[in-house]
Design a protein around this nucleic acid. Structure first.
Lengths: 211, 211
DNA sequence: CTATCAATTGACACAGTGTCAATTGACATA
DNA sequence: TATGTCAATTGACACTGTGTCAATTGATAG
């Protein structure tokens, strides 16, 4: 019985995820989702109070089904900071395409719905843990470049991995996902890692520009 | 007389820009814009066929008033590739906060309106010229890091400068605009510039990860 | 046999965009 | 002074999509 109601709920969540993946995050009206789940539009409201609540639940639901924990294992068990950063980017690069449709819908909903904004921010906080751990692993190895304060490096690493950057590079620039992963690794390493014996880059010299 | 009709048009465009800057790109209904311009909602449609057409026109209008050309001069007249990159980031970092509200509205409109998407893409193409010139100046100095192909470096440079990254760092992370500019310069230099005598980073060594 | 509960149908309120028609008021021309 | 033009106004309306409400159906459990 309670499995019955969960069954419908699950069908709605799956239909939501599928509709959003297909539409690349665009559209996916309540009516379409309901149709895809094989129920009436109003019935959706018996399970979710609003569209954004549905989006949030669907995002969590998808996350659950993707087994994030074991996907993160290679990063968490990395032996060096550099490896941890690399593994984290590999994780993110393989995870992102799978959540993209839903993530995009949530990102769009953010603009009009405070609950969606909170939900997204909540996910980003979770992601930040991964980024923080990677940067801290660099710090522990003494390999975070001098120019970066830890917290700023975490911010910048998060920024690099923004959904919108992936979207831009893969959709607008035509990068494959593998290229994205590989280039992001290079970018992150060049940006954040100082290699032993590497003399510091003459950045400060140019601090007082001629205009 | 024809200055009369342009006068109203200009008032609408200014009101649009102002409303959007104030609301950080959110909202700004046709009714509010009309009120801000001191005319009726319907009168706006006498000058612009749709909301997105208005947004596009307002964006161009704002761009015109900001004298982009002279702001770009320091970058265009830079003597070295590195300086050109720095000046370009300084330009962009001072320009972005001024267009942010409107840019954000256009970015949001993009999700439902093809014309807005085209308009935005058009602006990005223009911006790409600046990024290309900066990267090419590095290439000319022989200072683009070996790991980057020119075109990929341009893509990545563009990605770094995405509005969404600025938004994330300044709104979510609390960076000041000066910090954004300064850190972006560092990030870009570390990422793209190879300094004479700098030995290559042992990236390829880690190309076959252990999992 | 009846109570319960998910789901259905159909109607409706609300916000926001975009359209249409009739009207006003200023200004120019004959 | 009469006429035409044109920007702008008012008010009504169609359309889309979200969210609410009420009455009804149909299956299942006690």
């Amino acid at each position: 019985m309670s499995s019955e109601i969960n069954e419908t709920r699950r069908r709605i969540l799956d239909a939501t995820a599928q509709s959003l993946v297909e539409s690349r995050g665009r559209g996916a009206k309540m009516g379409e989702i309901a149709k895809a789940a094989g129920i009436s539009r109003q019935a959706v409201y018996l399970h979710f109070a609003s569209r954004s609540e549905l989006l949030i639940a669907a995002f969590r639901h998808l996350g659950d089904s993707l087994d994030v924990k074991s996907r993160l294992a290679p990063s968490r068990t990395a032996k060096t900071g550099v490896e941890r950063v690399e593994r984290y980017i590999e994780f993110w690069g393989s995870y992102l395409p799978e959540i993209y449709g839903l993530a995009k819908a949530l990102l769009i909903a953010q603009d009009t719905d405070a609950a969606a904004a909170d939900a997204w921010r909540d996910r980003m906080v979770a992601m930040r843990d991964g980024c923080r751990a990677a940067i801290d692993a660099l710090v522990a190895d003494g390999m975070l470049a001098d120019e970066w304060k830890r917290d700023e490096a975490i911010d910048a690493f998060m920024a690099l991995l923004q959904v919108s950057n992936w979207e831009y590079l893969t959709q607008e620039c035509g990068w494959t996902n593998e290229r994205y992963i590989e280039r992001m690794k290079k970018l992150a390493e060049r940006s954040f890692v100082s290699w032993p014996g590497q003399s510091d880059i003459p950045g400060p010299r140019t601090a007082s520009p001629g205009y």
